[in-house]
């Protein structure tokens, strides 16, 4: 959007773009009708900026790596498994965990809109909601994954999961080799957002350990 086209000067010297004005107008009328509360909106913003995010999913994955019983429960019913752990935030129904292995790579998309497991990953990145990703990951996953720097071995099976209903998918990446002696909380730091969407993998090197 070109700034010069959309900014308008106001008497108080502030400038608002057209879209900012529309959002403000929407908020104003809803507040004045008593249908929304500004303090609630602020809390929602705070929640998505600071409380929920990939760190939640990363802790789930790290626990699955170190605790076989939890992993078994997670793959059976991820919602129940997570909600039975007292130190994880509550997640919604029909969260489904899908596990990567030496022979299988899973990757998740929502071709029709932007369905994404908010309660374990936070809000989706712009690329996840964009036309390039949504159009091609289903028809040409290997080349799209290369754009993320991920080269899958020839012959590895690739499953592309399209979130077309009120189910949500969380990829459980493979635990990196050489991490046997690392604690659960340190392991969680190796689990990236992209590795839980399937556009990346969790990785580990001696240097990353040194740097915490």
């Amino acid at each position: 959007m070109s700034d010069s086209d959309h900014h308008h000067s106001h008497e108080d010297g502030s400038t608002l773009t057209d879209i900012q004005k529309r959002v403000k107008a929407l908020e104003s009328i809803l507040v004045s009708k008593g249908l929304v509360e500004r303090a609630a909106i602020d809390q929602i913003i705070e929640h998505f900026e600071h409380k929920v995010g990939p760190h939640v999913g990363a802790r789930v994955v790290a626990r699955a790596w170190v605790n076989p019983e939890f992993k078994h429960a997670l793959l059976k019913d991820a919602t129940q498994a997570i909600n039975h752990q007292s130190d994880f935030p509550e997640v919604g129904q029909h969260l489904i965990a899908i596990e990567n292995s030496d022979s299988l790579h899973n990757v998740v998309v929502c071709t029709l809109c932007s369905c994404y497991p908010w309660d374990v990953l936070g809000l989706p990145p712009v690329w996840y909601k964009s036309a390039p990703y949504r159009s091609r990951i289903v028809s040409d996953p290997r080349s799209v994954l290369k754009e993320f720097g991920l080269k899958l071995s020839v012959g590895k099976k690739v499953r592309v999961w399209d979130s077309t209903a009120e189910t949500r998918y969380l990829v459980i990446p493979q635990r990196p080799v050489g991490t046997e002696a690392i604690s659960e909380s340190e392991l969680a730091k190796l689990v990236t957002r992209d590795s839980m969407i399937g556009t990346g993998v969790a990785s580990f090197s001696a240097e990353s350990k040194d740097h915490g």
Partner: peptide, 14 residues
């Protein structure tokens, strides 16, 4: 309904 369309260019993660 974008699945399977072409021409949108590469994915550009930020």
């Amino acid at each position: 309904d974008l699945g399977g369309m072409d021409g949108f260019g590469p994915v550009r993660p930020e």
